[in-house]
Simulated scan of single mutants.
Amino acid sequence: MAEEIYAARSGSGHSGRLLGEFRRTVLLVPLSEGDGGGLMSGWQGGVRWIYAFTDEEALARFVVARGAGAGAGAREWEYLSILGARLVDAVIPTVEGPTGVAVDVADEDGSMLFPPVVGIVPDACAVDAGPDRAEAV
């Protein structure tokens, strides 16, 4: 997945390959501590972004960037391992409002956003789906 993200960010990638790799990749999604163990997410631009990571090292960089790393107040971060396809096809439809996936958000040169648009999330959840498209689901 990291190679496809790098290729896409450098302009030499192909969006179809990137999306295919995303769907086939097992992602680590941290669980929120405060809301009964739901998936950790953040809000930006009117979209809920579910945080997902390609490996434990990427998740650890996120923990450190949030200031919740090593030290006396450190906690163990629980996470869900889930295929990218299952995350967008089964989980996102259960979330209220526009929802996308933010992969490896603590990696400035290795992060990638998968927004809630047609071709990434189910059409019924896509912000750019027209009324005809949504009814076809």
Rank of each mutant, 00 (worst) to 15 (best):
A2T: 15
E3T: 12
E3W: 12
E4D: 13
E4Y: 10
E4Q: 14
Y6C: 08
R9D: 07
H14I: 08
H14M: 07
S15Y: 04
L18E: 07
G20T: 06
F22L: 10
R23D: 03
R23S: 09
T25D: 05
L27Y: 07
V29W: 02
P30K: 10
S32T: 08
S32Q: 11
S32F: 02
G36T: 12
G37Y: 03
G37T: 09
L39W: 03
S41F: 01
Q44A: 14
Q44M: 11
G45C: 00
V47Q: 00
R48W: 07
I50L: 15
A52Y: 03
F53P: 09
D55L: 15
E56I: 14
E56H: 09
E57D: 15
E57H: 14
A58N: 13
A60E: 12
V63R: 05
V63N: 04
V64I: 13
R66D: 07
A72K: 13
A72P: 07
A74P: 09
A74Q: 15
R75C: 08
R75E: 12
Y79F: 15
Y79D: 09
S81W: 01
L83K: 06
L87D: 05
L87N: 04
V88F: 06
D89M: 02
A90W: 03
V91R: 00
I92V: 15
I92K: 03
P93W: 01
P93Q: 00
P93T: 03
G97C: 11
V101E: 01
A102L: 10
A102M: 12
A106W: 02
D107I: 11
D107M: 11
S111C: 09
F114E: 06
P115C: 05
V117E: 12
V117C: 02
V117N: 06
G119Y: 03
G119M: 02
I120M: 07
D123H: 00
C125N: 06
C125Q: 01
C125K: 00
C125Y: 05
V127T: 14
R133Q: 13
R133K: 11
A134Q: 10
V137R: 05
V137T: 10
